[in-house]
């Protein structure tokens, strides 16, 4: 980024972009995908049995495979999500004891929990990525409006997401300016002072921009409603999808009850 991008350019593709592609999952109605994502992640997250967790992971991976997302992006996100899982494995399965020197033993209960949670976390990750990563982010907020989420909350989402990219670019420009002046972060007050100024400037610019945006909106007759201009089309495909997902959810719940007996 040797030249700062002009304000009029579209935001650069980066970590703030939703995944792109054209699978059958991309064509589903965002309302169907959001409802299914919420329902399935709840069923999976609360599951306590091996068969349910393994089945959920298989379902999630199958959905993810058929979503045909760019695999590099998927792997990157997978790594980020599994940071917490690594921490689990560092802390849960071990038992420290003192018996003429430190003894490290395996804790079967901790091991079971760590393994179960690893399966569930990755299952939910795959399901959410397959469902919500295959559409535009603002469509999720739009779908929330259809589910009667509070008006102000939906508007807050839309504003937030709209200007997130603008501010991210501003931050990138400031970070670049620091870099060309030879700034390298370290463990010192100078670093903290620099980052404080960076965030302070971003806050003031965000605040001023909010004022300008709001004045401009008032000039155009804003009275508290953001009209959503593109509309969703619910088709039979979405109905079928919801039924199938409902059956999968039910199956997982049954596996949970059954699995609790023999695990």
């Amino acid at each position: 980024m040797s030249q700062a991008p002009a304000q009029t350019q579209p935001p650069p593709a980066g970590p703030l972009e939703a995944a792109q592609g054209a699978s059958w999952l991309h064509r589903l109605d965002p309302r169907a995908k959001l409802a299914v994502a919420l329902g399935l992640s709840l069923v999976v997250a609360l599951g306590q049995s091996w068969p349910a967790a393994l089945t959920a992971l298989a379902v999630g991976l199958a959905a993810l495979a058929s979503a045909r997302l760019p695999w590099r992006q998927v792997l990157g996100r997978l790594a980020a999500v599994n940071f917490f899982v690594v921490l689990l494995w560092v802390f849960l399965p071990w038992r420290l004891g003192w018996d003429n020197g430190w003894q490290v033993g395996l804790d079967p209960e901790g091991l079971r929990l760590a393994l179960l949670i690893s399966l569930k976390t990755n299952a939910v990750f795959a399901i959410i990525l397959a469902l919500l990563g295959t559409g535009r982010v603002e469509h999720v907020f739009h779908a929330l409006a259809h589910f009667h989420a509070p008006d102000k909350l939906v508007n807050l989402f839309l504003f937030f997401y709209r200007y997130l990219h603008v501010l991210k670019r501003e931050q990138a420009r400031l970070a670049w300016a620091l870099k060309v002046r030879g700034f390298t972060p370290g463990n010192n007050l100078r670093t903290w002072r620099t980052y404080a100024s960076l965030v302070g400037v971003l806050l003031v610019r965000g605040y001023d921009r909010a004022e300008r945006v709001y004045q401009a909106m008032l000039c155009r007759g804003f009275s508290g409603t953001l009209w959503l201009l593109d509309h969703f089309h619910w088709s039979r495909r979405d109905t079928v999808f919801c039924w199938c997902a409902g059956l999968v959810g039910l199956g997982l719940a049954i596996l949970n009850l059954g699995g609790a007996v023999w695990s």
Partner: peptide, 15 residues
């Protein structure tokens, strides 16, 4: 206040 809260939330996300 909504635009201000939204923009400041965005700054905090970026930060």
């Amino acid at each position: 206040r909504l635009p201000r809260v939204a923009l400041l939330a965005a700054v905090f996300f970026v930060a």
